[in-house]
Lab assay of single mutants.
Amino acid sequence: MATDAALRRLLRLHRTEIAVAVDSAFPLLHALADHDVVPEDKFQETLHLKEKEGCPQAFHALLSWLLTQDSTAILDFWRVLFKDYNLERYGRLQPILDSFPKDVDLSQPRKGRKPPAVPKALVPPPRLPTKRKASEEARAAAPAALTPRGTASPGSQLKAKPPKKPESSAEQQRLPLGNGIQTMSASVQRAVAMSSGDVPGARGAVEGILIQQVFESGGSKKCIQVGGEFYTPSKFEDSGSGKNKARSSSGPKPLVRAKGAQGAAPGGGEARLGQQGSVPAPLALPSDPQLHQKNEDECAVCRDGGELICCDGCPRAFHLACLSPPLREIPSGTWRCSSCLQATVQEVQPRAEEPRPQEPPVETPLPPGLRSAGEEVRGPPGEPLAGMDTTLVYKHLPAPPSAAPLPGLDSSALHPLLCVGPEGQQNLAPGARCGVCGDGTDVLRCTHCAAAFHWRCHFPAGTSRPGTGLRCRSCSGDVTPAPVEGVLAPSPARLAPGPAKDDTASHEPALH
Rank of each mutant, 00 (worst) to 15 (best):
H48T: 04
A186H: 08
K253I: 09
R110W: 15
D41N: 15
E51D: 08
P233Y: 05
L62G: 00
E237D: 10
P163G: 06
T3M: 15
A144Q: 02
G204Y: 02
L97D: 07
Q182W: 02
L10W: 01
H60V: 01
K164V: 06
E216K: 13
L7D: 00
L128A: 13
R110M: 03
E137I: 09
S241G: 08
K165R: 08
R174V: 04
E53H: 04
L13V: 05
Q108G: 04
K253M: 10
M194G: 07
R15C: 00
K52D: 05
D70G: 08
Q189F: 01
V38R: 09
L87F: 01
C223Q: 04
G228P: 08
F59G: 02
L28C: 01
A261H: 05
P233I: 02
T68V: 05
K259T: 09
L128C: 13
L210H: 06
G269H: 10
V80C: 00
A193Y: 11
A140E: 14
V80N: 00
S153V: 08
R89A: 07
K161R: 15
P154L: 14
T130G: 12
S195E: 08
C55H: 02
F82S: 04
G178Q: 03
E167F: 15
S71K: 13
A261N: 04
S248N: 07
A33F: 03
T16F: 01
N86F: 00
V104D: 00
I74F: 01
W65F: 02
F59P: 02
V226E: 02
Q108F: 05
K50A: 00
K243N: 11
F230V: 05
P200G: 08
T72K: 15
L210A: 05
W78S: 03
D76G: 00
A140I: 15
E51R: 03
R149A: 13
Q108W: 07
A138H: 03
R8C: 02
S107H: 14
S249D: 02
L13T: 04
L146C: 05
V214R: 06
C55Q: 00
F100D: 01
A186M: 02
P266R: 07
S107T: 07
K253N: 07
S187R: 12
K243T: 11
K259C: 14
K52G: 04
W78I: 02
D36E: 14
R8I: 04
A142Q: 01
P125R: 07
P119W: 15
G227Y: 02
F77E: 04
K235A: 05
R149Y: 03
R8E: 00
D4F: 04
P200Q: 12
S217C: 12
V80H: 00
L177I: 07
A121W: 15
G180H: 14
K50L: 04
F43G: 04
A25W: 00
K164F: 14
G251E: 14
V226A: 06
Q69H: 01
Q262K: 10
L87C: 02
P101W: 00
S169L: 15
A141N: 04
T147D: 07
A140N: 06
N179L: 10
L63G: 07
Q172H: 15
S195H: 10
G204E: 08
E207P: 04
A19P: 01
V206E: 03
H60C: 00
A21F: 01
G218R: 12
D34F: 03
N86A: 00
A160L: 07
K245E: 03
L7S: 03
S99H: 05
G204I: 02
V256N: 06
S241A: 05
E88K: 04
P56A: 05
L63C: 01
E88T: 15
R257F: 07
I211M: 04
P148F: 15
G197T: 04
I211R: 02
R110C: 04
G260R: 10
L32N: 00
P124N: 07
R79C: 03
K111Y: 13
T183M: 06
P254R: 05
S135W: 15
L29F: 00
V199K: 07
P266K: 12
T183W: 06
S156P: 04
Y90I: 01
A61H: 13
G218W: 00
A61W: 15
